[in-house]
Amino acid sequence: MLGRAVDRARFLNAVSTANGVTRYKLRRLLGKLKNGDLKPSEKIELSSYMMSEYGAWVTWDLESDGINPPFSFLSTDSPLQLREALGLDINDAAIHNLPMVAFAYESETVGTIHKPTTADAASGLRFRVRSPPPPAERDWYGLTVPWEENPRATSSSDERLFPPKRPEALHSPARFPVDVSCRFYPDLADA
C-alpha cells in the first residue's frame, strides 16, 4: 500500500491543469472519496483523471512492508506534522500548515516503483547523500529527510519525537487508481 501526500492547493491546480476539471468538481469528488460516498459513475469519472502530471512521490509503511496504512505513523491530523515527516516545504510560515491531501493505493496499480535520484529530488528538496550506502536489499528506495532542525520540533512545549525517516520512491504519472482512498490533513469536511 503506497501513500502520496500533497499540498491540497497545489494538488488541485495540478490535477485541474492535467485534466481540465473544475476545482469545485474535483473537491466534491475528493470529499466523496474520503467519505466512501462515490457513486459508480463518479468512481469511473475519477479513475479517468490523471492523478499527477509528473512522477509522483510516494511512501509506505516500512515495518509492515506496505501492509499497514502508509500514514499510520502520524499521531495527529496536523498537516505540519505530515510535512515534517516527509521533508516537504515548511520554511514559510504562511503556508506550512495549509491543508494536505493524502492518498493510499495499491502499488500494483501504478506500475514500477523507482528509486529517487538527485535529478528527481532537484535542488530545492532536502536531498542528502546517505553514508554509508544502505545494504543492497534496501537500496531500491530513498529515505525522507525530516525537519529535525525545525524550531517547532525542538520547542519545549512540543514533546513529540522527531518524525522518523520514511521510505520514499517515485512512480510514473498515473490515473487515480480504482482502489484509491484518501484522507485530509486536517480532517476537513471536504477537500
Binding site: N13, T17, E53, Y54, I95, L98, A122, G124
Partner: peptide, 17 residues
C-alpha cells in the same frame, strides 16, 4: 522552481493565503 512541477502549482498554494 523544480523541473517536475508547474510554477503555478506553487502559486496556487500561496493563492490560498
Amino acid at each position: 522552481a523544480r523541473i517536475d512541477e508547474s510554477p503555478f502549482d506553487r502559486i496556487a498554494t500561496y493563492w490560498v493565503v
